[in-house]
Structures are given as C-alpha cells and as structure tokens.
C-alpha cells in the first residue's frame, strides 16, 4: 500500500510543481517564500477540513455538514465573545472544538445507531446547522467591531514567521498522520472502510468506528469555525457556503478513494494545497474564476482516473490466474 500511495502522492507533488513552474514563468513573485507562506496560510482551513473529511471518507461515509458546522460553531463562539468579552481565548478554542465535536457526534450517532446513509444524514444536518445560525441571529451579521481584539488576533499572531493558523494546520497534519498510522483507532478506520465485513469478523465495530470519524471531522470543523470567523472578523449565515464540496474535492484529488479504505493525511494535505495554489494563483495571472472552476473540476476527474488505473492491477492478476486454470 505504501508504495502505491507514495507514487500517487509523488504524482500529485509533481503536478503541484508543474503548476507552480507555469505560474512562476509568468509571475515570478508568486513563488517567493513570503507569498507561498501566504498561500499556505490561506489554504490552512481547507487542509484542516480535508483531514477530517479524509477520515470520514475512509470509513465509506461522507460529511457534507463540515462547512455548516464551521459556520454554526463560528457564530456560536462569536456570540460567546460578545456575551463574555473577558473569556480567555483558550476557553473559546475549547468551546469551539467541543461544540463542533458535539455536532459531529450527532452525525455519527445517526449513521451508527439508526443506520441512515451518511450522505442523507449530513445533507440534513448541513441544512439544520445553517438554519440554527439563522435562528440564533435572525439573519444578522456579527461584525468586526463587535468582536474583541484578542478574539481576532489569534489566527494572525506570528510564531517563527508563520501565523498561528498555519501552525495549527501543520500540527494537525503531524497529529493525524500519527493517529492514522500508529494507533488502533487509525487502523480501524482503514479496516472498516476497506472491507466492513472483514472488519466486523475481526472484532471491529464498524458503526462505532464511523461514529469516531464523524466526531473527529466535527471537532476539526468546530476548531476551524473559530479560526475562520476570527480571521475574517465576520460571522453570518452563509460563512463558507458550499465549501464542503471543495473539501471533498481536495480529498479526491489527494487520492482518497470515495469507496473507502484508501487515503492518507499527506494525500489530503497535497490535494488541499493543489486547490489552494490554483485558487490563489489564477487571479494573479489574470485568469477568470470560471477557469479556476474548470481546472479544479478537471483535476478531480484526472485524479479519479489515475486512482482507478492504480486500482485496476489486482484484477489483471486474477484474470491471469483464471487463464492458467483453463
């Protein structure tokens, strides 16, 4: 598995390199370290959400409610900030992560205990979460001047030349890489999605594993909710509207199999970076946003085709064997 994934990730890395080279030939300033840092920071929320989504997709599920979770949690912490301006930011972060976790658990419980298809569950909760924001605010915005300075400062704060937002993405990549490769829970995600029947017989509770995947996705979405709202210093109903599809796209481009069982944190990271670079570069080189959509779309299809090709080889082996048998 490692070798195939390594090839996949290498391919994606090469693709990112080519994209950067093309951009650099027309606009060299784009590839300066300072600008790439900006691009990475800009892509950090996508990286975070893609990691959570990757884990969910790994277990043969999908979480369409991540962006709505982000928006609702962002609004909740913004309102908390207004109501209690003195509340220290670490508490805000705990509230955001905890609230997002609860929303993720709600998805997970519906999938696990009621065995409702995940796409239906999260399509429903997506609408519910957005609806909740409207109920909380009656559609009003929470604007920059209502938030405390400390609330808005955190994602921008600079540590060793990188904003906190970027550091959180980096820590998440390392933390979840370890979780996925070095813990029994990580192994269970791969097993439950790779072959649910076999996982069941091996003593893994597939439903519970899916529940934990949704819980993690929710926790990440909640945390990202605070980061997003504080970074842009605004909270409203449509924050990150439609962003869940970009997140799924990042996973697919990153080689995560939509059938479950195949995917890595590195893949999700690279998929997100690919989309992040395109989104940041195209306006710079004066290409219309419509082309951006077309390029992202093509990247998804190319990624799926490449992965399908990679998955085809075992079939050939079986055929050969069948030929020998005759």
């Amino acid at each position: 598995m490692k070798r195939i994934l390594a090839t996949r990730e290498l391919l994606l890395l090469v693709a990112i390199g080519i994209v950067l080279a093309i951009i650099a030939s027309r606009f060299p300033a784009f590839v300066t370290p300072a600008n790439l840092t900006v691009v990475f920071n800009d892509t950090s929320p996508l990286i975070l959400l893609a990691i959570g989504q990757m884990i969910v997709i790994l277990t043969k599920c999908i979480d369409l409610s991540v962006a709505a979770n982000l928006a609702l949690t962002g609004m909740v912490v913004a309102l908390v900030n207004i109501a209690a301006p003195d509340l220290p930011i670490p508490v805000i972060i705990v509230i955001a992560t905890g609230f997002g976790t609860l929303l993720g658990m709600f998805n997970g419980l519906l999938v696990w205990k009621l065995a409702i298809p995940p796409i239906v569950v999260t399509l429903g909760t997506m609408t519910i979460f957005r609806g909740c924001i409207f109920l909380l605010t009656e559609g009003k915005w929470v604007n920059s001047h209502e938030m405390t300075a400390a609330f808005k400062a955190v994602p921008r704060a600079d540590i060793l030349g990188l904003p906190v937002l970027s550091w959180i993405a980096i820590v998440a990549v390392i933390f979840f890489s370890l979780l996925m490769t070095r813990t029994t829970l990580g192994r269970a995600f791969y097993a439950a999605g790779g072959n649910p029947h076999a996982a069941t017989y091996a003593g893994i509770n597939v439903g519970r594993t899916q529940f934990w995947a949704f819980t993690i996705s929710g926790a990440i979405a909640g945390l990202t909710g605070y980061l997003w709202v504080s970074r842009f210093a605004v909270a409203y109903v449509d924050v990150a509207g439609g962003f869940e599809l970009t997140v799924v796209a990042a996973c697919v481009i990153g080689g995560v199999s939509i059938m479950g069982g195949i995917g890595t944190v590195t893949g999700a990271l690279l998929g997100a970076l690919f989309l992040g670079i395109i989104a940041n570069a195209l306006p710079v080189v004066n290409i219309s946003p419509f082309w951006q959509m077309a390029i992202s779309g093509s990247a998804i299809i190319i990624a799926v085709v490449v992965n399908a090709q990679a998955n085809r080889s075992p079939g050939r082996i079986i055929l050969k064997k069948a030929e020998q048998a005759t």
């Binding site: 192994r187 791969y190 097993a191 072959n195 076999a198 199999s257 069982g261 195949i262």
Partner: peptide
Amino acid sequence: GKQGAIGALPIFQ
C-alpha cells in the same frame, strides 16, 4: 473475498 481479507491493507496489517 467479501468477509475475509482487506485488499487495500498490507499483509501484516
């Protein structure tokens, strides 16, 4: 085939 091995995982796993 269906209930035994997990094709996408390595042998040791």
